[in-house]
């Protein structure tokens, strides 16, 4: 009896030892791979050579990145993605991502560029590189019209619904520790949770909440802007100077051409309604 449990203990310990070995192995080789980044698979040259650019977009976030009933990807980000590919002279291959695997998708070379409503934060800047912004937003809070939440103090001790990996999650975790967060994996899940009454309110980017509350008239964006204003930018893998510089130039060019206002009117306006103007979302020409 004793002997048996001892053998089991050894087995368990050795499994953990093996795991540790695997993990430390990873750590070591990661240093090597980052130092030898000369053959960058996502450089402009390489993308042109391949003839395709792999762009990460959302698949369930109208009006930014979603799929219409004909099975086509459309939205504000997707229109930008098509323009980027056109200006690079390559085909575009979309990779659908969730909010919390956008960074991993870049870092493991699954995609060249992320155009998925990606808000710039200091934490994210440490692990990936952001290009110039093409949109501005801040965190908003949506709640049922029957029990509206209009100030942050009302949320004390209540459940607030967020999606993992979003700016709203970070803001509430660090700045509003008195609230209880209910975290979900996808946009679909978070809105279902709000509809099922699992939380008093839901926090996400305000522009997106305007759109959602327009379609769901029982809910209202009680807090229009909470926390600092933030920007939405294309993102590339850390250290990918080649594509970063190209994207910066591209954003400047498109902003000057009024591409984003056009994109706004085409993709976002039908969703946001009259209370939001293009200048609330699109950045001005400098």
């Amino acid at each position: 009896m004793k002997k048996k449990s001892f053998a089991r203990l050894i087995a368990i310990v050795s499994v953990f030892a093996a795991l540790l070995l695997v993990l430390t192995g990873c750590g070591n080789s990661s240093k090597k791979s980052s130092s030898s980044s000369s053959n960058n698979p996502s450089s402009v040259k390489q993308i042109k050579k391949n003839g395709t650019i792999r762009i990460a977009v959302f698949g369930d976030l109208p009006p930014y990145g979603w799929v219409n009933q004909d099975g086509k990807r459309v939205g504000y980000d997707v229109t930008l993605a098509h323009q980027v590919a056109k200006d690079l002279g390559v085909k575009v291959k979309f990779v659908q991502v969730n909010a919390n695997n956008r960074v991993d998708a870049l870092n493991s070379n699954k995609v060249d560029l992320v155009l998925a409503n990606f808000t710039v934060t200091p934490e994210r800047k440490q692990v990936i590189d952001f290009a110039k912004p093409y949109m501005k937003v801040s965190v908003g809070v949506v709640s049922p019209k029957s029990k509206p939440i209009t100030s942050a103090s009302q949320l004390k001790g209540k459940n607030v619904i967020v999606t993992k990996g979003t700016t709203a999650e970070t803001y509430f975790t660090t700045k509003q520790p008195n609230t209880k967060l209910l975290k979900f994996d996808s946009k679909t899940q978070q809105f279902n949770a709000l509809k099922n009454g699992r939380g008093a309110a839901l926090a996400d980017d305000n522009s997106y909440l305007y759109a959602w509350s327009k379609d769901n008239p029982k809910y209202t964006v009680g807090i229009k802007s909470i926390g600092p204003k933030s920007y939405i930018s294309p993102a590339v893998k850390k250290g990918n100077k080649s594509l970063l510089n190209w994207t910066n130039k591209e954003i400047n060019k498109l902003t000057k051409q009024g591409f984003f206002v056009k994109d706004y009117n085409q993709q976002l306006k039908p969703y946001f309604g009259k209370e939001v103007k293009p200048s609330d979302i699109v950045l001005p020409t400098k």
């Binding site: 369930d60 109208p62 979603w66 799929v67 009933q69 996808s186 679909t188 809105f191 959602w212 379609d215």
Partner: peptide, 9 residues
Amino acid sequence: QQIIEANNH
């Protein structure tokens, strides 16, 4: 999920 989100409104 794509279909749900696209038709939610």
